[in-house]
Amino acid sequence: MNDDNLVERIADKNFNVNEFVKAVLDDENIRGEVIKQLLTNNDIMVYYHCYYIISKASEKKPELFYKYWNNFVSLLEHKNSYHRNIGLTIIANLTKIDEDNLFSSIFQKYIEHFNDDKFMTAQCFVQSMKKVIRNKKQYEKKIIDLLLDIDKICTYREKQKELLKSDIIEVLDEVYKSTKYKDIIVEFIRKQCNSLSPKTKKKARFFLAKHDL
């Protein structure tokens, strides 16, 4: 794949994401151009397709994208919530190889999105925590405490907070077997068995059954 008409091909609604993922992993020039379009192109078909490409590629080989860390961090303060979601997701992928511990300098900025202006971005934040808590063990207690404090931290409508707890349960399940903080996790999960959200209630009961609690 060469970069002739690259943007047009990415914008095609029927574009082949796996073809582009391979190209981005194999070719530094194409990788740089796709990241450029992700960061600067205002056409949602372009930047969102670039997001699909980079999110998949950075899961496969995060080390190829580490040098763009600051570019992805800049998205966390973007006025467009889609871009904030993109930043959250890709940074979570890169925590796997964060050898310079760059995440420590943005931790507070990152967790602000637990109570983002947009509820969908808060959902993206919590979903990203599954990777962060797996890759950054030193933040395990802080993340658990943060998520369990959802009712005080988040200002969304009650139904939205109850739904968000379904994603929180998935994060807690990620670390449950190895964590030292089982007691507070189980206490939280048991409370969700009476959640207003059917999805959260179902996940809570599944969690307890899965872990024989």
Rank of each mutant, 00 (worst) to 15 (best):
M129R: 06
K118R: 10
Q160C: 01
L75I: 11
S195C: 07
K118E: 13
C193R: 13
K136Q: 07
F188Q: 07
N101K: 14
I53C: 00
R84T: 11
I106G: 02
K96S: 13
K141I: 10
W69T: 10
R134Q: 14
K182G: 04
K152S: 14
N5D: 14
I168S: 00
H83N: 11
K180F: 11
V24M: 06
F119S: 11
A122V: 03
E59D: 09
E170R: 09
L208D: 09
K137H: 10
Y47Q: 04
E63F: 04
N42E: 15
I10K: 04
Y176E: 06
L39Q: 09
F15S: 06
V24H: 05
N29K: 14
K152R: 13
F207K: 02
M1K: 10
K61R: 12
S55W: 03
V126M: 09
E187D: 15
K152Y: 12
K130V: 10
R84N: 01
K130C: 14
Q108R: 12
K182N: 06
K96D: 09
D183M: 05
K79N: 15
S55L: 11
Y82Q: 08
S55H: 09
K210A: 05
P198Q: 04
N101Q: 11
N18R: 12
E174C: 14
F119D: 04
L75Q: 10
C124W: 01
V132Q: 01
K159N: 13
V17R: 12
C50H: 07
I144S: 09
E63K: 10
V186P: 05
R84P: 01
N29I: 14
E170W: 02
D173W: 11
Q108M: 10
I189E: 04
L76F: 05
I150K: 05
K36D: 15
N41A: 08
K203E: 14
E158G: 01
V21P: 03
E158A: 06
L213W: 09
K191W: 04
Q37T: 03
H211G: 01
L38K: 03
V126K: 08
I169G: 04
S58V: 05
M129F: 03
T179L: 02
L38M: 13
L75C: 06
D117C: 07
N194W: 06
L208E: 08
I54L: 02
Q160N: 09
E112G: 01
K182P: 04
D183P: 02
K60E: 15
G32Y: 02
N18D: 15
C50G: 08
I143L: 13
D3I: 13
